[in-house]
């Protein structure tokens, strides 16, 4: 067992864990942050996306011990953030979710896409989103939500 300390959504979390424990399990089972979902546990679906030091990462493929002293943000940590609330509003209005299982990963992916692309069009969004699976929506509402959010963010800046 190894004792690790991570900063999760701005708070220190110290737990004694096995070296093989994934960041996803650490967040879900130790920190009770269940907004991070597991859809495949082998890096293919993106449902488990969090950010580590600000960059998106698949928490199912990341070991918690690799994140010692790093800052991890989960979807719960984005509540009240104005940029994320704007993205959320567009997911709501464009019907960008059905069962909601892929949604936390999609939201964090959306923010990352919009930080790297100003007001992206459909083709860019689809390409950038290609590592995130949604089984319910056919992506139509998700792509549209990100497009609208990008347009509104670029109007604001």
């Amino acid at each position: 067992m190894i004792t690790v300390t991570l900063t999760v959504n701005g708070q220190e979390e110290t737990h004694s864990i096995e070296a093989r424990e994934t960041l996803a399990d650490f967040l879900r089972e130790r920190c009770n942050l269940t907004g991070t979902h597991l859809g495949c546990e082998h890096g293919a679906c993106g449902a488990c996306t969090v950010t580590i030091n600000g960059l998106p990462a698949r928490s199912c493929l990341t070991l918690a011990v690799m994140c010692e002293d790093r800052a991890v943000q989960t979807v719960e940590g984005t509540r009240g953030d104005p940029e994320m609330d704007l993205i959320r509003k567009h997911f709501h209005e464009a019907h960008g979710l059905q069962c909601g299982y892929c949604t936390p990963g999609m939201l964090l992916a959306a923010r990352d896409i919009l930080r790297r692309h100003k007001a992206p069009g459909e083709a860019t969004i689809r390409k950038e989103l290609s590592g995130h699976l949604c089984r319910c929506t056919g992506y139509v509402g998700i792509v549209e939500a990100i497009r609208r959010a990008g347009a509104e963010l670029s109007d604001k800046s």
Binding site: R28, T34, V75, R79, H92, G100, Y101, T103, L107
Partner: peptide
């Protein structure tokens, strides 16, 4: 009508079986 069920999922506050503690 926009969906009532969206809010909890957008906050990462949905409760799936794996989330029950």
């Amino acid at each position: 009508v926009l969906r009532k069920e969206d809010e909890r999922h957008l906050l990462g506050a949905g409760q799936f079986v794996g989330d029950v503690r």
